[in-house]
């Protein structure tokens, strides 16, 4: 199959992925919007008004970039992990494995599908945020590139989780016990400057800290982390995650017999 054929196959996978999460929009788009709206109300409005300023901004403004990024991370991850595991579980992954579509195209299709949901939820949450605070973008390039790179990283993470998962429990364990604590401790709700030196140092090991702060820089122009560090961290995760995912798919020892 030539490049044009592979391009059609790629579009087919992306279209199928978008169709999947749009078909079940009540499960995929509405709950994160409600959850994040509650965060805006509780942490932003009710509690936030008593917290005062953080990083030179009122708390609502400070927390909005983190909450948008949290929605993007969770939904990019959730889309790929549930879609790919479902494909494995129902064995319709065989439809792709018997076809001439290459492993790179399959992987890219799932990544873009994950990004599509992450960005869709991110856009919904951003619109909701406008009801609670004014949003201006400090640097469009940083904002957009941070969103794209982060959603790629967590689409890849969801893919790796799905390859290793053998039951539905396995696709909820990582989000519950790993992803959620990392997000909550990744500077979504606070500046690491507030932490004692030791815990601030430990936080530096959390990749989500770099993503949240990179995105916050794009929106507000403030960050706990240097921008170059944040980009370096993201690019490393994208490259390593992509190569490892491709290795899993090419060897496909967990997908083929």
């Amino acid at each position: 199959m030539n490049i044009n054929g592979q391009w059609i196959a790629f579009k087919t996978i992306v279209y199928r992925e978008i169709r999947r999460f749009m078909r079940i929009w009540v499960q995929t788009l509405v709950p994160p919007a409600i959850t994040i709206a509650l965060y805006f109300v509780i942490f932003g409005n009710l509690i936030g008004s008593r917290i005062g300023e953080m990083g030179g901004f009122d708390y609502m403004q400070f927390v909005v970039p983190g909450l948008i990024m949290m929605a993007i991370i969770q939904n990019s991850y959730a889309n790929v992990v549930s879609s790919f595991f479902g494909t494995k579980f129902q064995r319709n992954i065989e439809e792709m494995l018997v076809s001439p579509v290459t492993e790179v195209v399959i992987l890219l299709g799932y990544i873009v599908g994950g990004m599509a949901r992450g960005l869709a939820v991110g856009a919904i949450v951003t619109v909701l945020a406008l009801f609670f605070t004014d949003l201006t973008v400090h640097n469009w390039f940083v904002t957009i590139s941070m969103v794209f790179l982060t959603s790629i990283v967590f689409s890849l993470a969801g893919f790796i989780n799905a390859v290793y998962a053998e039951s539905f429990d396995d696709i909820s364990i990582i989000p519950t016990f790993v992803l959620t604590p990392m997000i909550y401790l990744g500077g979504v709700f606070y500046s690491v400057d507030l932490l004692p030196d030791f815990w601030a140092g430990v936080s530096m090991l959390n990749p989500i800290l770099y993503m949240v702060n990179g995105f916050r820089y794009g929106i507000l122009g403030v960050s706990d982390i240097g921008l170059i560090q944040a980009y370096a961290m993201l690019v490393i995760f994208v490259v390593v995650g992509f190569m490892f995912s491709l290795y899993l798919l090419t060897r496909a020892e967990r997908l083929r017999t």
Partner: peptide, 11 residues
């Protein structure tokens, strides 16, 4: 139709 797409068939 999706299977056709995997084989490079235009929609």
């Amino acid at each position: 139709v999706t299977q056709g797409g995997y084989y490079g068939l235009p929609r």
